[in-house]
Amino acid sequence: MKKRGDSAYNMIVVLALICAAAGLALGATYRATRGRIETQQLRERMAALRIVLPEAHKDGFREMSTPKSAFAAESRYYEAYDKALGDASGELVGYALEAEGDGYSSKIRVTVGVDPKGEVIRGIKITFQQETPGLGANCEAIEAEGTLWDAIAEGTLWNAFLRKGKEKTSEPRFQAQFRGKMFDSFVKVGNKYMNIDGLTGATITTNAVADAAVGAVEEFTKRILKYSDGT
């Protein structure tokens, strides 16, 4: 370090210059990546919608929001049609709702698909969780597809590393079991939903997901479906 570097004037100038350079670099990168980040979020949301309502057309989701009331904040939901939105002949095939629950060590966000009458759960997709790996995080665990040695032999190991293709082919078992269950069958006895196979050692996560899904459907039926006369 040079001697002259220690004057107060020098210190302030250098610090200010470093901060300015840092600010510039950050600003430029943010501008460059912002669009991409938004696209990713949109794509993720669309993927979740397609999973919970597979029968809907890929352009058939219309974003809606529940009216604000004294009791609940505005929340987002989607109407899903079997044709693209512009096509007038499209029929309503269901609704997709976004819900959130408190898990064991994190928030859990779930997207739920229901039929137009709110009677059958068409599917759920956990869009965010940071639960304990090995326990709660198993709500997103996919069954192992064969052994490592097969993967090496087939040369698919690198794809697995990049996580390509896997999510598309298989749905986590925990989430798959919600598909097609009647809404009425979600009855809690004590601390347990009788129609759901809980995650081993993670009752809290299991209940958080189910509660969020069931609560969202219940709330939605109460607040929206009741007032719209069977579209």
Partner: peptide, 11 residues
């Protein structure tokens, strides 16, 4: 802990 490697079964 999971018996897997990159999502593939080890043994």
């Amino acid at each position: 802990g999971k018996g897997t490697l990159l999502g593939y079964e080890l043994i």
